[in-house]
Design a protein around this nucleic acid. Sequence first.
RNA 1: GCGCUCAUAGCUCAGCUGGAUAGAGCAACGGACUUCUAAUCCGUAGGUCGAAGGUUCGAAUCCUCCUGAGCGCGCCA
Length: 549
Amino acid sequence: MKQILQSLLDTAVNDMIKDAGLSNDLPEYTIETPNNPEHGDFATNVAMKSAGIFRKKPIDIANDIVSRLKHPMIMSAGAVMPGFINFSIDSGFYHDLVKKAATDDSLFKSSIGEGRKVMVEFVSANPTGPLHIGHGRNAAYGDSLAKIMTAAGYDVHTEYYVNDAGNQMNNLGKSIYARYMELSGKEFAFPEDGYHGQYIIDIAQELFNEHGEDLAQMPDAQGTDVCFKKGLHDIKENIADTLKNFNVDIELYFSENSLYENGDVPSSLEYLKERGFVFEKDGALWFRSTEFGDDKDRVVKRSNGDYTYFASDIAYHKNKFDRGFMTVIDVWGADHHGYVKRLSSAIDAIGYEDREFQVSLIQMVNLVNAGERVSMSTRAGSFIELDELIKEVGNDAARYFYTMRDYEAQFDFDIALAKKREYDNPVFYIQYAHARVQSVLRKAKEDNIEYELCSGLEKLKSKEELEIIKKIYDYINVLEQSARNRQPHRIGYYLQELASMFHSYYFNNKMLNGDDKDLTSARVTLAVAVGNTIRNGLALLGVGAPDRM
RNA sequence: GCGCUCAUAGCUCAGCUGGAUAGAGCAACGGACUUCUAAUCCGUAGGUCGAAGGUUCGAAUCCUCCUGAGCGCGCCA
């Protein structure tokens, strides 16, 4: 419908430009669905946007445009001050929409992505311990974004970057080894930056059960290595399990260490060196990020010979582009924002000009428990695990809560509240709307009430019914906005509104009317259309749509 | 000190890249179950969009300057 209007308007305005003897391009304008029903089904600001071209009052232009529009879909069109044009649409077109929404999923998919290859890299938490509540937001966001962009026609691939190289891995090995030695009654200094969580002790205990005191007999370096390998393996597995339980799809766990093993790190630095962006100073290797507006140049290889984390990140992102991704989206915690300029500089230096790099900085989750603030540090071991949260509040509620708010705003996750609110929660409200639809279908079957899907639709003519259909049609708009702006939270708000409209409609109107087959058919079709919309929307958020509750 | 993000109803937050009378949920108050699930619905109340300027037909939205909160500024990751 919108496309039809747009092409009608484009033609009308183009004709007017020609008639006026001008050669301007069309102005950018919007066609939207007004919140105020008195403003019709659609409204456009094209006349106001054209005021500069024609040097006339917007209202006069609007009237001129209206006089040029003719189409069976348009029941009426009118120009109002200060220059909006409002349209009312013939209800037959709405009935076609319900039919579509009730029978297939084509209304819930968009093609604005045009098959563009996109990588979303997210979570990427260091494999030094289980995921905690802070990671949950990143995981929920990234997964929903990927699902949304897929529905919007992008070719999306998801990845988790595993930082299985560098100092922290040494610390992990030593931490486990120290705990192991404790169990063996021996001493090994616990590393200063070691990890204190219970899971470290658990891993050590497993090693002890498995090997007895064998590891204590080895040289420390060798024992530490065994501990490290076991620790990394177990922690990675734990993280992958948690994400799977959280309904998060990661297509590939990409190992940082693999970039060292195959030589990508030095070779990508060499590549930048050839292009003149890497130089030597004070015995270290530097990347000239000031060239791209960064505050200072950054070290990529330390004077002691170690590569920095930044170096492997350069290699990783070059690798992403080399694999043909046109858009690369990184989902990071907001505390890493100081790192954005550095990496985007390096990507500029790599020089794939047709590519796009974006970072979504997920704001902090402040953990609150009954008013008391809980700090979350992996090292101190005082964090609440994501697993625990999922167990407490359920996967659906957790996923929904995390993506309920704009990722750019920080929010307090009050655990006590989340536990308590189980039945007082927007996600259940939405799911209940879906379950109600299924319940109607079950009831019809039980009572042998006859109806025919997609027939009798001319009965759908009340204001309430047409509003719901318009809302269903608005889904595609929300999906596209959500994908474009990388804002999954819009979906949740939309679903809440749709569910609310349906609950109200359901309460005031009987879906099943045994004596009136046409009316029953029409209303059941509308209900099914709503149910399908909700199921599709919830799926984007990683939330299930149960048939009964 | 420099940089990033945020500030909207009592609370938690939306507000569709500048549109028409700023919206929801929770909390508060008043109503609706002989019903396809009351996990629902209907109504009432609640606002100087942090403050001040600017840009234009039009600003919660864009610009400048303040105020306040969070985070970041390493040859760590």
